[in-house]
Amino acid sequence: MSARLVNRGLDALTWLVLALMLSPILWLVLSSLQTDGQLSRGAYDLLSPTFDAFTRMWQSVDFERYLLNSLIICTAAALCATAFAACAGYALARFQFRGGKALSLGVVGTQLIPGSLFLLPVFMGFVWLKQNTPIALFDTHLGMVLVYTAFFTPVAIYFMRYFFIAIPRDLEEAAMVDGCNRFGAFVKIVLPAAAPGLVATFVYAFLFAWDELLFVAALTQENAETIPIGIRNFIGNYQERTAQLMAAGVVSTLPVLIAFFATQRWLVKGITAGAVKG
């Protein structure tokens, strides 16, 4: 009897925690459906929401451009990082390397360098390349993709290596006996088996790239700016479009949210596998 009560209580607690965790997001959505005046006075009228901010935000700031740039850059960077990591991770998992420890150290090492230390040199390097060579990295999608790929590849390799280790060697060996070469076995057998890991790595890299604001502020001017830059255009020195800012917050969360829900089954599996292997 008391065990059942405790169980009920814990169920209720779980739902309460969930409600607490979700409430700020709910508040964001509710706020985006109000007018500037209601927001600045704190006088919400929840019964008569307006989509005004959502229609006006595209006119007052060229938000489409930022959104599109973010989508292109983050997708490309996450794809590249995942692809590199799949190859490198596989090699590290299958062929005996001396440097397993060195790799872990290297991965942690890249995470240890604060962006503020190498941002200025990267900026200068990009500008130098632009002025002295035909390589266009400054203020281009390519440049940002390169930077973000480099950011996330080390962690991604670390991730992927564990997924590959978890895949039994027998599977590939069987395929190779059946006439596949190693590459064929990798593509046909190993990659599908590692799919959750690939998805998890991709989504993880995508989320981080979506979030980055320090480098994109310095390395772009007008062609490759992403959402973190664009959203701040709603905050002006002479006026603030609060409702549109909230609407832009919703719009910038939506694509990642959709990506998340579309892949969450695999994503959770991927993170889970990563966690269990440590």
């Binding site: 900026f123 200068m124 500008v127 632009k130 002025q131 400054f138 203020d139 502020a217 310095a218 001017q221 830059i229 701040r232 905050i235 002006g236 020195n237």
Partner: peptide, 16 residues
């Protein structure tokens, strides 16, 4: 306004 100072300075220094 948040980024204009960085942008203009960078543009002036880089000549881009």
């Amino acid at each position: 306004w948040d980024v204009q100072f960085d942008r203009i300075r960078n543009a002036a220094v880089a000549g881009e």
